Measured scan of single mutants.
Amino acid sequence: TTLHFDLDGKKLQYTGVSEEIARLVEELKRRGVDLKEIVRILEELLK
C-alpha cells in the first residue's frame, strides 16, 4: 500500500506500507490526530 500526505506544502509518499499500518493511519485521521503527529508515528513504525 502507498500512503500520500500533503504536510505544510510538502508531498510525502510512503510505499510498501502494510494494510495494518494503512488502517491505523486512517483511524488516527478519523480521530482527528494532527497530521504531523501521524507522520511522526508512521516514520517510527517504518524504521
Rank of each mutant, 00 (worst) to 15 (best):
K29G: 11
I38T: 05
T15V: 14
Y14W: 06
R30N: 15
H4F: 14
K36W: 12
Q13L: 11
R40Q: 14
K47N: 14
Q13N: 08
E43A: 04
Q13G: 04
T15G: 07
I21V: 12
F5H: 01
V17M: 03
L7S: 02
A22Q: 08
E26L: 11
E20F: 04
T1P: 07
T2Q: 05
V17A: 02
Q13S: 14
K29C: 09
D8E: 10
G9H: 02
R31F: 06
V33P: 02
R23I: 14
D34R: 07
D8A: 04
Y14L: 02
K29Y: 11
I41T: 13
T1W: 04
L7P: 00
I21K: 03
K29R: 12
L24H: 15
V17S: 01
E44N: 08
L28Y: 10
E27N: 09
E37C: 07
V33S: 08
T1E: 13
R31V: 14
G16H: 12
D6W: 11
L42W: 00
D8Q: 04
F5M: 04
L7N: 02
A22T: 09
G16V: 03
Q13R: 07
D34G: 08
V33H: 06
L42C: 04
K11M: 07
L45T: 12
E43T: 06
G16Q: 07
V33N: 06
L24I: 14
V17N: 01
D8S: 03
L35G: 08
L7H: 03
G32F: 07
V17G: 01
K47H: 13
T2L: 04
K11E: 14
K10G: 07
Y14Q: 00
G32P: 04
R40V: 10
R31Y: 07
R31S: 12
K11Q: 12
L42N: 00
E44F: 09
G32H: 13
K29L: 14
K36M: 08
L12R: 04
V33W: 06
K10S: 08
R31P: 02
H4G: 05
R30S: 14
L46I: 10
T1V: 15
K11S: 11
V25E: 00
R23M: 14
D34M: 10
V25A: 04
S18M: 04
L7Y: 07
L3G: 01
L7C: 06
R30P: 03
V39Q: 03
E27L: 07
S18F: 03
T1Y: 09
F5P: 01
I38N: 00
I38V: 14
L3T: 01
E26P: 03
R30L: 15
S18V: 06
I38A: 03
L46P: 03
L24M: 13
E19R: 05
V25K: 00
H4C: 08
R40C: 06
L12I: 13
K29D: 11
L24Q: 15
L35R: 04
V39N: 01
L3H: 03
K47A: 13
D6Y: 12
L3K: 00
A22M: 10
D6K: 01
L46V: 06
L35K: 06
L7V: 14
E44K: 09
R31L: 13
R40F: 12
L12K: 05
K10I: 14
E43R: 03
F5T: 01
E26K: 07
L7G: 01
K36Q: 13
L46M: 08
T1G: 13
L46S: 03
H4P: 02
K10W: 04
L42P: 00
E43C: 02
L42E: 00
I21A: 09
K36N: 12
E19Q: 12
L28C: 03
E44C: 07
E43K: 03
T15W: 05
L12M: 07
D6R: 00
G32M: 14
E19V: 13
G32Y: 07
G32A: 13
D8P: 02
L45M: 12
K11L: 04
K10T: 13
L46H: 05
L3W: 00
L12H: 07
Q13D: 08
T15K: 07
L28T: 05
K36I: 10
K11H: 15
R40E: 11
F5G: 01
G16S: 05
Y14S: 00
L46A: 03
G16D: 12
I41F: 08
L28V: 05
Q13Y: 10
V17E: 01
E44Y: 10
V17W: 00
I21W: 05
R30D: 12
E20R: 06
I41G: 05
Y14G: 01
V33Y: 06
L46N: 03
V33G: 07
I21H: 11
E27P: 02
D34H: 10
D8Y: 02
L3E: 02
V39G: 00
D6S: 02
T15Y: 08
L46W: 04
I41E: 10
E20V: 06
D8C: 05
E27Y: 06
E27V: 09
E27H: 12
K47T: 13
L35Q: 10
E19H: 14
V33L: 07
